[in-house]
């Protein structure tokens, strides 16, 4: 049945209404499931480490520290400055290692190579290693995610 000037019949209207309700019900049930299944991400904004642990590093060496659940790398450069990286390959997420003799980072998963500044130079990695901001504040080494103040 259709009222004059109406765009749809009564049947269509009721079906639409019912379908809409069912859809809304489904969404309201699925939303909590969705929320539940994805835990909040855990990457830290900042990590503070005692500088004394890293003061005596030799140039051209790398030390590990936990950056959330990822390995972080602190590298002492030849001029005595420090650089911090996330030690995770930009190809498919394997942990990289630093090879001091070759002055390169290496990823064993698919033979990925980065130079000593973390720039990708060989193999499949598409981007340089992710850098972290590092500053020395008194006794502390403060490492921050890029863009975090």
């Amino acid at each position: 049945m259709r009222i004059k000037h109406s765009l749809f019949t009564r049947r269509q209207f009721l079906n639409g209404l019912l379908g809409g309700w069912l859809g809304a019900l489904a969404v309201s049930l699925l939303y909590p499931v969705f929320k539940f299944v994805f835990p909040p991400t855990r990457e830290p904004d900042q990590v503070t480490l005692p500088f004394s642990d890293f003061k005596d590093m030799k140039p051209n060496t790398v030390e590990n520290f936990p950056w959330g659940s990822k390995p972080g790398l602190i590298k002492k450069n030849d001029d005595g400055s420090y650089t911090a990286f996330v030690g995770v390959c930009t190809h498919l997420d394997c942990n990289v290692t630093y090879l001091p003799e070759q002055r390169k980072f290496f990823c064993a998963c698919h033979d990925g190579w980065y130079d000593q500044d973390g720039i990708h130079i060989g193999g499949p990695p598409p981007r340089p290693l992710r850098r972290l901001n590092l500053s020395i504040e008194g006794e502390d080494l403060v490492i921050k995610r890029e863009g975090v103040e």
């Binding site: 590990n64 936990p66 659940s69 990822k70 390995p71 030690g87 390959c89 394997c94 942990n95 990289v96 290692t97 990823c107 064993a108 998963c109």
Partner: peptide
Amino acid sequence: DLMAPAPEGI
């Protein structure tokens, strides 16, 4: 070890 580099020959 979640923090260790990937071993060779994976």
